[in-house]
């Protein structure tokens, strides 16, 4: 394979709609100028500390926002949908520091902004934007956790990651998963781990022909590892 073929995004089709998986882990719907990110987990280090856990480097909110900012800067979306678990919990959301809130407000200015609710952050949002349990935008629907039997569905929650055996070197990357019914986004937040695609929760959800798009410096598309084939 020639180096020229390394790329930073991958186009695919869901419910007749052309979508672009970005190497950053964001999803772009060019026709609607709509940007989707999932599982930002803002305020995670603060929540862990509050509950008596470790004092992790408290820079993940800053880092996540900086990367989101770069995507918005580059793509200039009309709408942004955060697919749930945007905040690590309610207190993390309310405890967000002033700079982070101002930064978010700056990103929200002049565009439609939707907070889909996740298991970590149910309930209304005190900062701007629209708060919804889920969103229909024909032919697609946006929700936090995939619903078996749904179609044209865009969700997050699972933080999928896939491991690839590249000439004896195991490389693990967060990834998108998609088939003809749905796409599951990787987590966009800095402090997020992943669930291997061969975990039953994911393997049972996706069709046998599902594909994975690895994120990282570049995208790479592979058959979903561990799918039920």
């Amino acid at each position: 394979m020639r180096a020229e073929q390394l790329q930073n995004e991958q186009t695919f089709t869901l419910a007749g709609t052309e979508l672009i998986a970005r190497s950053t882990g964001a999803l772009w719907w060019p026709e609607q100028r709509l940007l989707v990110v999932s599982d930002l987990h803002l305020g995670k280090s603060e929540r862990i500390a509050r509950r008596g856990g470790s004092l992790l480097p408290p820079y993940e909110t800053q880092d996540t926002l900086a990367r989101l900012d770069a995507e918005i800067e580059w793509l200039d979306p009309r709408s942004v949908i955060c697919l749930g678990d945007s905040f690590d919990d309610g207190a993390a959301r309310d405890g967000l520091d002033v700079e982070a809130v101002e930064w978010l407000n700056r990103l929200m200015a002049g565009r439609r902004w939707v907070w889909i609710e996740g298991n970590h952050d149910p309930g209304p949002v005190s900062i701007g934007g629209t708060h919804l349990a889920e969103l229909q935008h024909a032919p697609l629907s946006f929700r936090h956790i995939a619903r078996p039997g749904a179609s044209g569905e865009i969700s997050g929650h699972y933080h999928p990651k896939a491991t690839l055996n590249a000439r004896g070197r195991a490389v693990t990357r967060p990834c998108f998963l998609y088939d003809s019914d749905r796409v599951i986004l990787p987590a966009f937040g800095t402090y997020t781990g992943g669930l291997r695609t061969d975990a039953p929760a994911l393997a049972g959800l996706m069709r046998p022909e599902a594909l994975a798009i690895l994120t990282g410096p570049f995208t790479a598309e592979i058959p979903m590892p561990g799918r039920c084939s």
């Binding site: 394979m1 180096a3 073929q5 390394l6 690839l164 055996n165 590249a166 000439r167 070197r169 490389v171 990357r173 594909l211 690895l214 990282g216 410096p217 570049f218 790479a220 598309e221 592979i222 058959p223």
Partner: peptide
Amino acid sequence: GMATDRLVAEEAERLMQDAGLGES
């Protein structure tokens, strides 16, 4: 420097070919 990414791209292509998806 780009070794890992090249290897990943190469392996991805091989897997897609194996799965009969090489024409993507």
